[in-house]
């Protein structure tokens, strides 16, 4: 054995140390991303969540116009935070449809009355079935769907001021 081989264990230790230190300094991104990006929206049909507003079916998304599909819930705090951004997108003329997760009509009505109502349709996803089909793992999440019903972008978490340009760009590209 050569004399330099004496250093091999130390080298091994340094390697392990470096890996651990890296993971401490920059923890891994634990965000669960949907595997449905670039794929067609799953077929679904959800009943209306609130009276006076239609429910949501996947057929709406194949009518030629790009749309946002917002996954939200009245019991979700960051959904309140993103409400002004959705209202802004609505004022820009972006059609926004929604899936309400595990919710009740009264609670959703109160939520919309308090935070504004940017939605054209709201589907009642009582047991998160559409959410699971979308590959969404929490609320809020927003998907950009092109006019042919293909998912082109997933935004995980509440939409903030800085996220709006990315969403608008994806909508423009999907046109």
């Amino acid at each position: 054995m050569k004399r330099s081989a004496v250093w091999l264990p130390l080298l091994g230790f340094a390697l392990v140390f470096a890996v651990v230190a890296m993971a401490l300094v920059r923890p891994a991104d634990r965000t669960v991303r949907s595997a449905m990006i670039g794929k067609p929206l799953p077929t679904f049909s959800l009943a209306a969540m609130v009276p006076g507003k239609p429910g949501l079916g996947s057929a709406v998304f194949t009518q030629g116009q790009p749309r946002l599909l917002n996954v939200f819930a009245s019991w979700c705090v960051p959904c309140i935070a993103e409400a002004p951004m959705l209202m802004r997108l609505k004022r820009m003329g972006v059609p926004i449809e929604a899936v309400a997760i595990r919710d009740t009509p009264a609670a959703v009505q109160a939520f919309l009355a308090r935070n504004g109502d940017p939605y054209g349709r709201i589907g009642n996803d009582r047991e998160s079935s559409v959410q699971l089909a979308l590959g969404s793992s929490g609320v809020p999440e927003t998907f950009v769907i092109d006019g042919k019903g293909r998912i082109v972008l997933q935004h995980v978490g509440d939409i903030r001021d800085g996220d709006v340009p990315e969403i608008l760009a994806a909508l423009e590209k999907a046109r």
Partner: peptide, 12 residues
């Protein structure tokens, strides 16, 4: 819960 809080930390 599966709400995304600002500074969302899954598992916590």
């Amino acid at each position: 819960s599966y709400i995304r809080h600002p500074g969302f930390n899954p598992g916590s």
